[in-house]
Design a protein around this nucleic acid. Structure first.
Lengths: 172, 172
DNA sequence: CCTATCATGTAATCCGTTACATGATTAT
DNA sequence: ATAATCATGTAACGGATTACATGATAGG
C-alpha cells in the first residue's frame, strides 16, 4: 500500500474527472472523456480501469466495490487525492506541447504540399465544425469555465491550420 | 530475420533522416533531431539506438559495424526501406493531432486563466522567437522545402496561442 | 594530472495500446 | 430465438522514458 507512483497527465485527468462528479466508475469516465475532453487529450478505455487502481494503491483514490450485479468499482478522491489535484491545477506551467502532427511530419520529409493540403483541409474543416457545434451547445446551456475556454482554443487552433494549409493548397 | 513489425512515426523519422543523409549512426541521428526536427516531433535518444535495430531486423535498414575504435553501427536504407518511406510520404493523411497541451488541460480543470496565461505567454513568445530565428537562418542559407514549411506552421501555431492566452491574460 | 563534461551505448521500468473475453440488452 | 451490438472488464505486448554506465576529450 501507499506505493510511490509518478503522476502523469492521465493521472490528473482521472483525478479531475472523478472530482468533478464526486465519484465514478471506469465506465462512466470513459463516457465523459468521449463526450468532450477526448479531443483535447484522449485516454484509452483500458487505462480508465488500470489508472484508478494505481491511484487507489497510492492513496489518492478510495475504492468501493458494488456488492450486487456487476460488482463495479466506484472511486472517489481521498483527502490526499484532492490535495494533489489542487496543487497541480494551481501550479502554472510553461510547458509547450510539440506539434506532433502527422501531416506536418510528412511535409517535413518531402510530401507534396498541395496534395497533402487538400486532405488536411478537409479534416481540419470538419473538426472546426465539430468544435463550434460543441461550443454553441455549451453556450446555449449557459456553461462557462474551462471546458468552453479549451474549446475556443481548439477553434483558434483549427482556424490557424486551415489558414496554413489553404496557403499551401494554392501553391503559396 | 524479417520479423514483422509495425512502423510508427518514430520509424519513419529514423528512415527519413537516414535517407536524407545516405547513412548515419544513432549518435548522428540524435544531433539532427536536436538541431531542428525535435520541435516538431521529438525522439528520446535511447530510441535512436533501439529503433534502427528493430528496423534492421525487419529488413528496412542495413547495418554495418565499424571495425575500429568505438565500433559504431552505421545504418543505411535498403530497397525495402526506401519503398516504405516513399509510400508513407506519398500517402496523404487526414489524421489530426490532439491538442495535448498541459496548459489547456489545467485550464479545463479549472486553473485560473489569467495566472496561467502569464506563464504560457512567456513560453510561447520565447518559442516563437526561436522558430523565427531558425526560419531566418534557413532562408539566408537559401534552403527551401519541408523544413521551412514546418517552421512556418510552427510560427503560425505560436502566434495563434499567443493571441489566445493574451485574451485570457486581459480577462477577456 | 585531475576533473568535468561530452560522446556513446545498454538495461530496466512503466505507461499506453491492442487484443481478448463475457454478460446484458436490443432488434429482427 | 438468434444475431447483433452495447456494456464492462482483463491480459498481453511493445514502444517510450528513465536510469545506469563507461570511454574519450578538453579545460584548469
Amino acid at each position: 500500500m501507499q506505493a510511490e507512483i509518478r503522476l502523469t497527465p492521465t493521472s490528473y485527468i482521472v483525478l479531475g474527472l472523478i472530482d468533478a462528479r464526486g465519484e465514478a466508475t471506469p465506465y462512466e469516465l470513459k463516457a465523459i472523456v468521449a463526450a468532450g475532453l477526448g479531443n483535447l487529450w484522449s485516454v484509452q478505455h483500458a487505462q480508465l480501469y488500470s489508472e484508478p487502481e494505481r491511484l487507489a494503491g497510492a492513496g489518492y483514490l478510495e475504492e468501493e466495490r458494488e456488492e450486487t450485479g456487476r460488482r463495479r468499482k466506484r472511486y472517489a478522491l481521498t483527502r490526499e487525492g484532492r490535495a494533489a489535484l489542487r496543487d497541480w491545477v494551481g501550479e502554472p506551467t510553461g510547458a509547450l506541447s510539440e506539434l506532433r502532427d502527422l501531416g506536418l511530419l510528412k511535409l517535413f520529409f518531402g510530401a507534396d504540399p498541395a496534395t497533402l493540403a487538400t486532405t488536411q483541409l478537409e479534416a481540419h474543416r470538419a473538426q472546426l465544425a465539430r468544435y463550434e457545434a460543441q461550443r454553441d451547445a455549451l453556450r446555449l446551456a449557459g456553461t462557462a469555465g474551462g471546458a468552453v475556454l479549451t474549446l475556443e482554443a481548439g477553434i483558434g487552433h483549427e482556424r490557424e491550420y486551415i489558414r496554413f494549409w489553404s496557403r499551401l493548397a494554392k501553391g503559396g
